[in-house]
Simulated assay, not measured.
Amino acid sequence: MIVVAGEALIDLVPHGAGAPLPALLPRPGGGPYNTALALGRLGADVAFCSRVSDDGFGEALLGGLRAAGVDVSPVQRGPEPTTLAVAAIGADGSAGYGFYAEGTADRLFTLPAALPAGARALALGTCSLVLEPGASAYEALLLREAGRGLFTLLDPNIRPGLIPDADAYRARFAGWLPHVTLLKLSEDDAGWLGGVPGGPDGPEAVVLTRAGAGLSVRTASGREVSVPAAPVTVADTIGAGDTVNAALLHALAARDALSPGALRSLGPDAWHDVLSFAARAAAVTCSRTGAEPPYAAELPPL
């Protein structure tokens, strides 16, 4: 089982061109939520670990996960409201966000006693590792499960507007890296963080997404593999990076590579296939408005 931990929120996506104040359509979102949803749609054995509001938005978020086959038994519930993220879509389909997160349910996540039985991998990232007090609980979960030998994926998915002290966050991020098996960064993330990390004490592999230029991986042993982006007419990029996370994990699971040390033995052809699968999956998401990742039947078999 793959466990995805982190926030579930509601994206408010602009709808209707030309209006001074466009209508905002509520869509399920949050990087970890989208990753779990995408894994479920791909047919993976996946669970979601978070804290979700008891409000109507929270019920809709959990309903979407259940419909995709995601185990939501690790989800904590609370009476606080659901976090809202207001999306602004650029001319190229790229998305920026403003967040309404003060006093929301997902910020009060507490460290669970254990993950579901059979957990092989843990994926974390985005707002959940920034907003306290929940961020410290998610950090503790990462350190505990990495220490138990779980494969870990980290996607920081940097949102600068949520980070009050950039230097403190960068130092904290560096402290996570020895506990991360696979790091996924966008070019924007890498630029904000000051470069793509590497070295013997860091992740076994770093996947870099480069928007329309495709994806690349650099392993701790120095191997580098790149693939082009899949052709697509972009509606928007909401959820594309989260779909990449899910597709990477799903493709690696198909190769029995979700264990510490396994990435070191993957050859160039295997990495090419894994990255190409992730690129195709992300292209499907980009072709749709909002975070709507593909189902397994929409992609070539692994």
Rank of each mutant, 00 (worst) to 15 (best):
S94A: 15
G56N: 09
P28M: 06
P112V: 04
A117T: 12
S73E: 13
P32G: 03
L24G: 05
N34D: 11
A166R: 14
R51H: 04
L162A: 07
R41C: 07
L129S: 00
L65M: 09
L108I: 00
A101W: 09
L24P: 08
F48M: 10
G98Y: 12
A91Y: 06
A44N: 07
L65S: 02
I158V: 15
Q76T: 08
R51A: 08
F151N: 02
G30C: 02
G96C: 10
P112M: 05
G56E: 14
S50Y: 00
T82Q: 06
I163E: 11
V46I: 05
E132A: 15
C49R: 03
L141K: 06
D155S: 11
L37Y: 01
G63F: 07
Y100E: 07
P160W: 12
G56C: 01
A137P: 01
A88C: 09
A101K: 01
G40I: 08
E139M: 01
L37E: 04
L162T: 07
A95D: 08
S53Y: 04
G30D: 04
L122T: 11
L84C: 11
P28Q: 02
V130E: 06
G134D: 02
L153Q: 13
A117K: 11
S53E: 03
P164G: 12
G58L: 02
L111Y: 05
T82D: 04
L108D: 05
A114W: 01
I89T: 10
A105S: 14
L162G: 06
L154F: 13
G149Y: 12
A85R: 07
D165K: 06
G98A: 15
D45W: 02
P74N: 10
V75D: 01
A113Y: 00
D92Y: 13
A60E: 13
G90R: 15
P160D: 08
G98L: 14
F109Y: 14
S50G: 06
